[in-house]
């Protein structure tokens, strides 16, 4: 087997596993049952999406995907913290 075949097949498999993880996280996000479960699902979704982008960058050999992954990580972090903070103060009287 050549190096290209190993890389392409193996990284494709890794990417498929990460996409499956994203699907499971999306299911938890849509299903709930409570708001904190949905936020947890969103957190897992963006985390696995970021890793999938890193693996995609490895497959194509393009350095551009690094920036995309970094920015996705930052935006996802801000979104999750803002949502959790809203949960703490938006619904419960403090």
């Amino acid at each position: 087997m050549t190096a290209i075949a190993v890389l392409d097949g193996g990284l494709g498999l890794a990417q498929g596993m990460l996409v499956l993880a994203m699907a499971i996280a999306a299911w938890r996000m849509l299903r709930g049952p409570r708001a904190q479960d949905r936020i947890l699902g969103l957190d897992t979704l963006y985390l696995n999406g970021m890793l999938a982008i890193v693996v995609h960058g490895m497959r194509t050999g393009s350095g551009l995907y690094f920036e995309a992954a970094l920015i996705l990580g930052m935006v996802g972090f801000t979104a999750t913290v803002a949502l959790a903070k809203f949960l703490m103060q938006g619904e419960v009287i403090q």
Partner: peptide, 30 residues
């Protein structure tokens, strides 16, 4: 596609690391 000049053992190492990592992420999602 990249990695034309890569030795085969290096390709296996990279793939093993990536698949193990993806496996842990998938387990976490499960």
């Amino acid at each position: 596609m990249t990695g034309a000049a890569l030795p085969v053992w290096a390709a296996w190492l990279v793939v093993a690391l990536a698949i193990t990592g993806a496996g842990f992420s998938l387990t976490g999602a499960l």
